[in-house]
Amino acid sequence: MNPTRKRRLIVISLILGAVGIAAALTVLALQQNMTYLYTPVEVLGGKVPAEARFRLGGMVKGGSIQRSSDSLKVSFTVTDGDAELPVEYNGILPDLFREKQSVIATGTLQGKHFVATEVLAKHDENYVPRDVKEAMAKAHEKHSVPEAAGKAKSEAK
């Protein structure tokens, strides 16, 4: 390799290395600051400043959804396994919203309730055909395996 090319190679490699390190440090610094959502444990633990708007993330607790009969008002409980928080919302819910679904609600804490202005459903990375899911559900029923046990197993994998 002739000297000019060698020099260029070294200079460009050094610049790339420097930019890489700068990016890595930025990502590490953001790790602590860039919180997209808080879980109920963190909220109850006082990690969220009072009266701040934030995103609350977790699972909709089974059997906790209560819809009002004459309006769009809905209330449900968000849980992360360790703690739970009641949520109130007035508006249209996304298609994927249902019990035991991960959701992200934006809003403020008012007293012990979280009043949401927006509720988003989080989709997981699993894609299962409908017939397979039905067959699985049948097998679970036959062997009396609760749905939650199967889910926990697949998550543990």
């Binding site: 860039m34 992200i104 989080k122 989709h123 997981d124 894609y127």
Partner: peptide
């Protein structure tokens, strides 16, 4: 992987089983 995001994680994995039928 690094952050809590609304976007789901990877379904198709180069190493290990993919999470899709």
């Amino acid at each position: 992987k690094w952050w809590n995001t609304l976007h789901q994680g990877s379904t198709v994995k180069l190493f290990g089983p993919s999470l899709i039928d």
